[in-house]
Amino acid sequence: MKIKDDSYMKWFRLIAFVVILGATVLCLFPFLLIISASFTQNDAIIKDGYHLIPTVFSFEGYATVFRFPKQVLTAYGVTTMTTIIGTTLGLFFMTMAGYVLQRKDFKYRNFFAFMIYFTTLFGGGLVPWYILITKYLKLTDKLEVLILPGLMTPFLIILMKNFIRSAVPDEVIESAKIDGANDFTIYSRIVLQLSMPGIATVGLFLALHYWNDWFTSSLFINDTTKYQLQYYLYNVINAMSFVAQMGSGTGVSLGDMPTESTKMAMSVIVTGPILFLYPFVQRYFVKGLTIGAVKG
């Protein structure tokens, strides 16, 4: 029996290795193209297309991005700050909500879960929301606007709820209650510790959401010193396609539009740092982290 299992295991691991390796290569390939293009001379890209090795090597893409380094660095600062504050706050609120919603003795959990979920089905559309934020909350050009609207999403709350439910057995909560702990203490002392992989996942997603957000800047920020990094990238990538649509009759001169190599350089610059976050999160994906808890 043992021997058979071992040989299965060997085959299985080999297959797993090959499949994962294949998937990795597929995911890596376009990214290598982008990195290569970011080091290629712009005219060469337009003329010869993309290659894995730059046809005409040049730093001009990066040079253009950093010709006003202050702007990029400020945008980095804004994004880092909104990501950190937003993720911390959002995680705090969402773990609490997730915890409450999975408590079986909480009578209205279904009602509230539905209330939160309902917002993914139904919405007033972009315009009323825009009016709410610009006209009534008056958040235009305020840093709060970059943090507040993204604080929570129904998906992440329900995901959190599920993670907590599977990680924290009811008996643990019951016994803590008998020991006289109140609900918040149970949450902060026990639940948070037991559901670390879930929190890490939700936190990662929330951080990604903040890091990748360009839409809020696009709608509500006019002050260039408050641009998020991604909006900066989004502008660099898109401006050209919008201007390309403008016929000669508009009289808009094309001036200093970002070029292909600039776009690529910008995407490398934007993506780089967030990759450091992932290994940090990975620490929590180690099997057996919750063993002790279940026994308790």
Partner: peptide, 17 residues
């Protein structure tokens, strides 16, 4: 760890690109 990180890469590639 490495492959996990790499599989996450495409998520950052903008559709425009």
């Amino acid at each position: 760890k490495l492959t996990q990180s790499i599989m996450f890469l495409p998520y950052f590639v903008s559709f425009v690109i």
